[in-house]
């Protein structure tokens, strides 16, 4: 069995004359958290979309779990294989409750068909109960069980983000793609979210690929960081290495982020010591 949960080689995506993703080689080891950073417009979400099948890559190969080639596979099949994601702008099913949103996630793991639905066969009852229970469990896991019956759009922002994750988890992914999960959060919420992400990897064994702009988060929990700029991979390695990489600093044109991250890590180490 391969070490890598995901292996992308030479992935390229063009939109007319613009090359959004340019021959990117990328790997994610099992049960790790991989971070993907880069300035705005670098092609991160486009890369995500190629991985999940929303876009079809023009060139390259994507191998999942050592066995499956993902190029040309439709998104729903990719999800069934075990990749799931959240979205940069929250895209919940607005008219459904939180519980229903998560239950939608269980779709690819259940088999109830028309006959079952119409005649309420034992499978229908069994799977409905299971889906409901599973959804509640997931909501509890992300810490919002009390809001299960609230309509999704009436939830506070932090809850909505967590709901997206719960929904994605319902598909039982081996690899979870998170697109800016802490966007718009205050430091407290960010810490809770970071915590949750780590638990997902440690407890549930889910590999995670994370797009983030908050350097504290990325540098804090990633096992490996990759940097994209203008569609190209310009650096890769441990958080410390990447931060010192001159190409990366140039891409961001600033040392501020670097300093903050260094500061945060120092603080993080102190916290661990005092625990």
């Amino acid at each position: 069995m391969s070490d890598y949960i995901l292996e992308a080689r030479g992935v390229t995506k063009r939109f007319g004359g613009l090359v959004a993703v340019n021959r990117v080689d990328f790997t994610i080891e099992r049960r790790t958290i991989a971070g993907l950073i880069g300035p705005n417009g670098a092609g991160k979400t486009t890369f995500f979309n190629c991985l999940t099948g929303l876009y079809k890559a023009d060139e390259g190969e994507i191998i999942f779990d050592g066995k499956y080639s993902l190029i040309g596979v439709p998104p729903d099949r990719i999800t069934a294989l075990g990749i799931s994601r959240t979205f940069q702008n929250i895209r919940l099913f607005g008219s459904m409750t939180a519980l229903e949103n998560v239950m939608v996630g269980t779709h690819c793991r259940t088999k109830t068909n028309m006959i079952d639905a119409i005649f309420h066969t034992p499978r229908y009852h069994r799977e409905e109960a299971w889906a409901r229970k599973r959804a509640m469990e997931l909501l509890e896991y992300v810490g919002m069980a009390n809001a299960a019956d609230e309509v999704a759009t009436s939830l506070p922002y932090g809850y909505q983000r967590r709901l997206e994750i719960a929904r994605a988890l319902a598909t039982e992914p081996k690899l979870l793609l998170l697109d800016e999960p802490t966007a718009g959060m205050n430091p407290n919420e960010t810490e809770e979210m970071t915590d949750l992400i780590r638990r997902l990897c440690d407890d549930l064994g889910v590999s995670i690929l994370l797009i983030e702009h908050d350097m504290r988060v990325v540098m804090g929990i990633s096992d490996k960081v990759s940097v994209l700029d203008h569609g190209e991979l310009i650096a890769e390695g441990s958080p410390e290495d990447v931060q010192k990489n001159p190409k990366v600093i140039e891409a961001y044109l600033g040392t501020v982020g670097t300093e903050q991250a260094a500061e945060a890590r120092r603080r993080g180490r102190d916290d661990e010591c005092s625990n």
Binding site: S2, E7, K67, Y68, G72, V73, R77
Partner: peptide, 13 residues
């Protein structure tokens, strides 16, 4: 060599 299998053809094709 990495053995890659493609999922069955789905309806769109």
């Amino acid at each position: 060599t990495i053995k890659a299998t493609r999922r069955a053809r789905t309806l769109p094709d």
